[in-house]
Simulated assay, not measured.
Amino acid sequence: MLEALVGAPRGLSVTQIAESVGVHRTVAHRLVRTLEEHHLCRRLDDRRVVLGAGLVRLAEPVEQDLRILARPVLEDLAAATEATAHLVVREDEERVRMLMIVEPRRARMHVAFRSGQVDPIDRGSAGLAILAGEPPAEGERAAVGRARQRGFAVSHGEIAAGISGISALVRAGGRSGLSLGLSVFEVEDEEALGRLVIGAAQRLAVALG
């Protein structure tokens, strides 16, 4: 139910919730009441249900140490490139999740993403960089092999039309499935941005030990 509400920022009716999760409307109503009691959702004046502020408290401890260490690295990368910097973690075998996003403060325009966004691991530079950290696999995309050779992955328009991504694997001891990168409107010099992203990934890896 929470996943359904994440995908509907303007809210859903109880009937829509019931249909989206495949339960009877009475069951959905009871579940909504339970979530309301814990401030995980709330009802608007028109009775649509939206996410509640209690989720902020629950989300705060998630990967807190990682996010604390990553923030200054992402902030410096975003400032140096005037582009949106992001930290992505592997969700499972097929998906990655956007764990942290830092937007540049002085850029006239920049790419905006929703934190927590889930994307296919084989689409977009973040997932490709993570796959490039694994041994070559039969049937893998050519972009993965190229990322393995270059040390960073590049994608164009795979997550959002007109948006390019450049990401590198964070090779930290005891951690896997973590990449750091940039989302930009245009890539004038892939190698130059790639070097900056690799440097940021190495800096975070050192911080993580």
Results as ranks from 00 to 15, higher is better:
residue 76 D to P: 00
residue 199 G to Q: 07
residue 22 G to D: 11
residue 74 L to P: 07
residue 42 R to I: 02
residue 129 A to T: 01
residue 205 A to N: 08
residue 134 E to A: 15
residue 203 R to Q: 15
residue 66 L to Q: 05
residue 11 G to H: 04
residue 96 V to N: 13
residue 125 S to Q: 04
residue 166 I to M: 01
residue 164 S to M: 01
residue 26 T to Y: 10
residue 192 A to F: 05
residue 7 G to H: 10
residue 91 E to T: 02
residue 13 S to C: 02
residue 24 H to Y: 07
residue 170 V to H: 00
residue 26 T to N: 15
residue 209 G to K: 08
residue 112 A to T: 10
residue 128 L to A: 07
residue 24 H to N: 13
residue 107 A to I: 10
residue 202 Q to F: 02
residue 111 V to P: 02
residue 121 I to N: 10
residue 57 R to M: 05
residue 121 I to Q: 10
residue 25 R to W: 08
residue 12 L to K: 06
residue 10 R to Q: 14
residue 1 M to I: 05
residue 67 R to Q: 13
residue 166 I to W: 01
residue 68 I to Q: 11
residue 118 V to K: 04
residue 105 R to C: 06
residue 8 A to V: 09
residue 155 S to Q: 09
residue 158 E to T: 11
residue 31 L to S: 12
residue 81 T to M: 02
residue 86 H to T: 10
residue 189 D to R: 06
residue 134 E to K: 12
residue 209 G to Q: 12
residue 106 R to F: 14
residue 197 V to C: 03
residue 145 G to T: 14
residue 161 A to D: 14
residue 97 R to M: 12
residue 145 G to H: 10
residue 126 A to Y: 07
residue 96 V to I: 15
residue 116 G to Q: 04
residue 31 L to Y: 14
residue 85 A to W: 04
residue 90 R to V: 09
residue 50 V to L: 06
residue 104 P to R: 05
residue 34 T to S: 15
residue 201 A to G: 10
residue 77 L to G: 04
residue 160 A to R: 15
residue 95 R to S: 14
residue 167 S to T: 03
residue 56 V to A: 13
residue 154 V to M: 04
residue 83 A to I: 00
residue 71 R to T: 15
residue 9 P to T: 04
residue 92 D to W: 05
residue 86 H to N: 07
residue 81 T to P: 00
residue 42 R to A: 12
residue 154 V to C: 08
residue 191 E to S: 10
residue 117 Q to A: 15
residue 154 V to Y: 11
residue 66 L to E: 03
residue 204 L to R: 05
residue 103 E to M: 13
residue 140 E to P: 03
residue 87 L to A: 06
residue 208 L to H: 09
residue 205 A to Q: 05
residue 122 D to Y: 04
residue 138 E to M: 04
residue 113 F to R: 09
residue 83 A to Q: 08
residue 154 V to I: 15
residue 141 R to S: 15
residue 47 R to V: 11
residue 184 V to K: 05
residue 198 I to N: 00
residue 74 L to E: 07
residue 139 G to Q: 10
residue 124 G to L: 04
residue 152 F to V: 00
residue 116 G to V: 06
residue 94 E to K: 12
residue 199 G to A: 08
residue 85 A to H: 02
residue 169 L to T: 07
residue 39 H to F: 12
residue 157 G to N: 11
residue 24 H to G: 13
residue 206 V to I: 15
residue 127 G to M: 10
residue 30 R to F: 10
residue 101 I to S: 12
residue 107 A to P: 08
residue 125 S to G: 08
residue 89 V to L: 15
residue 110 H to W: 07
residue 79 A to T: 10
residue 61 P to R: 07
residue 115 S to K: 07
residue 172 A to K: 07
residue 84 T to R: 00
residue 180 L to I: 09
residue 114 R to G: 06
residue 178 L to T: 08
residue 192 A to L: 09
